[in-house]
Design a protein around this nucleic acid. Structure first.
Length: 889
RNA sequence: GGGCGAUUAGCUCAGCUGGUUAGAGUGCACGGUUCACAUCCGUGAGGUCACUGGUUCGAAUCCAGUAUCGCCCACCA
């Protein structure tokens, strides 16, 4: 399309056909990378982006962040800032293994059959196949990230950063290893964090089970028991006590006695603990310290033994006696059946409960006792909290600062170890004597730090890190940290971190904590959180619901610009948004409108082009003023990260101000035979320059269509583009001075044109028919204004002839309209005057204002300026009504 | 059980620190083959700003409460 000659550009802008070529030109130009040296005096603007999962495909969440971040980086690039946007992907250990396990499953293999080494080889092979996919899709959306700096959280730089980071935490006593109850996913066979353990409301069953009391000889008393309630009968093998509430009269007598555990015959002390809710269940609780977080605490208070009864696959282990080897859910009904036949099942009822499921695979999570690696979050969180409290990092929208604070204040230590293979191995080495040596050296330590045993006798920890540990280092590890590289010095700390609010805790909080500790700086000064994209009606998009908007399909059909525009307009930070087909189409229509406005301007160039001359006319001065206003607002809004208002403001400017009014007015002069060549040339330059400025302003949000038009303008006349062939490298415009007087003049003209069009429509005048019109100017200045305005009023309202009748009022029965310039009426009588609506509007306004100004309290207490303004308005309405009705107010 | 957010036109959303008779897009109705664009142009209808109180000369806007929806956090087996 770029080779098309300017006078036969297609009437429709074909985004999908043009966009890839434009992206290639950007790439070739090197515009995405910062200059070798920062421009002198330039401000720094660096984006921290959320690296997508390497195995994923582009979805709406990505489309949102790419759009917002690209919009910001393009704006700042045009401002001449020293900009950088480092792209990359995350290795997503648990998600990647989940995907690969499926793939090798189809090949008849399992993780176990391959073994760690071959499994990881296979994973790297898989990475080679998928690594580029998401990047290509981001490019299709126009992401102007610096691909030459692309990073991966499993690359060597990240690996080094992870080792150094952990070593520093360890040395500062902010990392430790210890036994604790953790969330265990039996399917993924790993620990998961609290955040990955997603709670679901589900209906289960609450069983009441009799534990017989022990007789003096330790045998169960067939006639005496204590009844406990449980939703997980398979955990009874790990019971080490029964607890009742200290104030519970029903059970108090039993305290100090012992109960006998069914099947195993273990003797369980009956203890008291405040944790028991007397009103719930039977009032007695079986205590299973190794498989329940509450019970774990109770066990600690009472020094109870911990018995682990599950293996890593969620099967009962040898502690479960005859049930050993059964899956926990298989065992459950069998246990219940056995208890029933023993007469020890007292009851069962459906029960609403909250169950934790693995975020990745949906398997019910089991609390499990194990030795784990932890990061001590207390001191880290304190600092991260202070940064936000004291405003060194700002979260947008503001109310998320409270959410962030609440989480930071109640934070638990972070279980960072994962019993997976794909990820960064924890850089800790065990020596046969049980000492631990943490090393940041790539080849590990030379010897045990405690006893000096040589490296050969040490074995490396097999646990790997939680994925979020390496992504928590992203803002600085991607810039070369821990080395003091030129990039790190030049671009760190970063400016804006933009991501979805759903990973505020997972990622943002961790970057804050790790960043502050490791780099002694806030990793970014602004956290910008966007919302989730939903389908029509506010429901979540889902494949089963068939309401998924696929960003790539949208891009193919409507263009990346349309997708970007639709994702930004009508949204606000942190709020979920609905994305509908109508919205995307509307955005596409806008790109087409821009294209056609450009087609008009390009095609309207006078040939030959004379030397422009003469004073700028009303239309030119007006659009100049509007452009100044639009530029000022766009700049202010983008500085405030208000992308939605920026986009909709320019939509209005480009479509309404520029196309509907300015170009229509300019068209009249351009086509008028009486217009001199010099004037025509002057007007054309005004239109062309306005278009060029509009392209600059719109480029951040719709980069492709603006770039395409820019190249047409550049080919037409390079002075329009300041000789800059690529818009992406052009400068952001500086706002001129808005002119309130000319704004008001044209506003009055528009009001009059609309009023007359309204009359025509209401009176049923055929669209093509010329109507005679009479206009009575409101006053002397309006009369002078009308001199200029008539030139536009006539063709725009299709009114001819127009007679000026100073001092007259509209005759009764004539369809009339009134505005700032005066009264206009059709020179004919209608049985039902079409001016009724306007008249009623005026009368209502007058009535309201008379009431307001007649109220002594208002006149006394409201600010004088407000009272004065209302008085003037009342006068104006009265005058207008008088003109409209011949003084019959 | 805590906390946060939302509730404005059929739909999707604006409405900043209170001040014209509450706006836009889309949808709807009517009218348009004038040489940029029918992915367009023009005109119009359509809202007790969830509800109840309060503060104020004045409330969609501020305060309190209620309702409905959504989300986050949380150890009732």
């Amino acid at each position: 399309m770029t080779t098309t000659t300017r006078r036969d550009l297609p009437t429709r802008y074909d985004a999908a056909a043009v966009e890839p070529g434009i992206y290639d030109r950007w790439l070739e130009s090197g515009a995405f990378s910062p200059a070798a040296e920062p421009p002198r005096g330039a401000e720094r603007f660096v984006i921290t982006m959320p690296p997508p999962n390497v195995t994923g495909a582009l979805h709406n969440g990505h489309a949102v962040f790419v759009t917002l971040e690209d919009l910001l980086i393009r704006y700042h690039r045009m401002r001449g800032d020293d900009t950088l946007w480092v792209p990359g992907v995350d290795h997503a250990s648990i998600a990647a293994q989940f995907v690969l396990d499926k793939i090798i499953g189809e090949e008849g293999e399992t993780r176990a059959s391959l073994g760690r080494e071959r499994y990881l080889e296979r994973m790297w092979q898989f990475m080679d196949e998928t690594r580029g996919v998401i990047g290509h899709q981001m490019r299709r959306l126009g992401a102007s990230a610096d691909w030459s700096r692309e990073r991966f959280t499993m690359d060597a730089g990240s690996a080094r950063a992870v080792r150094v980071a952990f070593k520093r935490l360890w040395d500062a006593d902010l990392a430790y290893r210890g036994e604790a109850l953790v969330n265990w996913c039996p399917r993924c066979r790993t620990t998961i964090s609290d955040l990955e353990n997603v709670k679901h409301e589900e209906t289960g069953t609450l069983w009441d089970i009799r534990y017989h009391l022990a007789l003096a000889d330790g045998t169960p008393d067939p006639d005496a028991w204590i009844t406990v309630a449980t939703t997980r009968p398979e955990t009874i093998f790990g019971d080490t006590a029964v607890a009742v509430h200290p104030d519970d009269d029903r059970c108090r007598a039993l305290v100090g006695r012992e109960a006998i555990l069914p099947f195993l015959g273990r003797r369980l002390p009956i203890i008291v603990d405040e944790h028991v809710e007397r009103e719930f269940g039977t009032g007695a609780v079986k205590i299973t310290p190794a498989h329940d977080f509450d019970d774990y605490e109770v066990g600690r208070r009472h020094d109870l033994p911990l018995i682990n009864v599950l293996d890593e696959d969620g099967r009962l282990n040898d502690e479960a006696g005859e049930f050993a080897g059964m899956d926990r859910f298989e065992a459950r009904p069998v246990i219940i059946e056995r208890l029933t036949s023993m007469g020890d099942l007292e009851g069962e009822q459906p029960h609403q409960m909250v169950i934790g499921r693995c975020d990745r695979c949906g398997t019910a999570v089991e609390p499990r006792l194990s030795i784990q690696w932890f990061v001590r979050t207390g001191p880290l969180a304190e600092r991260a909290l202070a940064s936000v409290r004291e405003g060194r990092t700002t979260i947008i929208p503001g109310h998320f600062e409270k959410v962030y604070a609440h989480w930071m204040e109640n934070i638990h230590d972070w279980a960072v170890g994962r019993q997976l293979w794909w990820g960064h191995r924890i850089p800790a080495w065990h020596c046969p004597d049980g000492h631990i040596t943490v090393s940041d050296a790539e080849d590990g330590p030379d010897a045990c730090a405690t006893c000096g045993r040589p490296a050969a006798e040490l074995t490396q920890e097999t646990d790997i890190f939680d994925t979020w540990f390496s992504s928590g280092l992203w803002p600085f590890s991607t810039l070369g940290w821990p080395d003091d590289t030129p990039d790190y010095r030049r671009f760190y700390p970063t400016s804006v971190m933009e991501t979805g609010y759903d990973i505020l805790f997972f990622w943002v909080a961790r970057m804050m904590m790790l960043g502050l500790f490791l780099t002694d700086a806030e990793p970014f000064h602004t956290v910008f959180l966007h919302g989730i994209v939903r389908a029509e009606g506010g429901v979540k998009m889902g494949k089963t619901k068939g309401n998924v908007v696929d960003p790539l399909e949208v891009v193919e059909e409507f263009g990346a610009d349309a997708m970007r525009f639709a994702l930004v307009v009508g949204t606000s930070p942190g709020s979920d948004q609905r994305l509908t087909g109508a919205k995307i189409q509307g955005a596409r229509n806008f790109t087409n409108k821009l294209w056609n406005a450009a087609r008009f301007v390009i095609g309207a160039r006078p040939d030959p082009l004379a030397e422009p001359d003469g004073e700028p006319g009303l239309a030119e001065r007006w659009i100049g003023s509007r452009l100044a206003d639009a530029t000022e607002r766009a700049t202010r809004q983008l500085d405030a990260l208000d992308a939605s208002t920026y986009a909709s403001g320019l939509y209005d400017f480009a479509w309404s101000d520029n196309c509907d009014w300015f170009l229509e007015m300019a068209k009249l002069d351009l086509r008028d035979e009486d217009t001199s060549d010099a004037e025509r040339s002057r007007i054309w330059w005004s239109a062309a320059r306005t278009l060029a400025a509009t392209l600059r302003l719109l480029h951040p949000i719709v980069p492709f269509v603006t770039e395409e038009i820019w190249s047409q303008l550049h080919a037409l006349d390079p002075t329009l583009t300041d000789g800059e062939p690529l818009l992406i490298s052009a400068r952001w415009p500086t706002a001129g001075q808005a002119d309130a007087t000319v704004d008001a003049q044209v506003a009055d003209l528009i009001e009059l044109v609309r009023g007359v069009r309204n009359l025509r429509s209401a009176a049923g005048v055929p669209a093509g028919e010329w109507i005679p019109l009479a206009v009575a100017p409101a006053d002397g200045s309006a009369e002078r204004g009308l001199d200029t305005a008539l030139r536009f009023l006539e063709p725009m309202a299709r009114a001819r002839p127009i007679q000026l009748r100073p001092g007259e009022t509209a005759p009764a029965g004539a369809p009339a309209t009134v505005g700032g310039l005066g009264v206009a009426w059709m020179e004919r009588s209608e049985p039902q005057a079409a001016s009724g609506g306007r008249e009623a509007y005026l009368r209502q306004g007058i009535e309201r204002l008379e009431g307001l100004l007649g109220d002594a309290r208002f006149v006394e207490r409201a600010p004088a300026a407000v009272v004065q303004r209302e008085r003037e308005r009342l006068e104006e309405l009265r005058t207008q009504l008088a003109g409209l009705t011949g003084g019959g107010a």
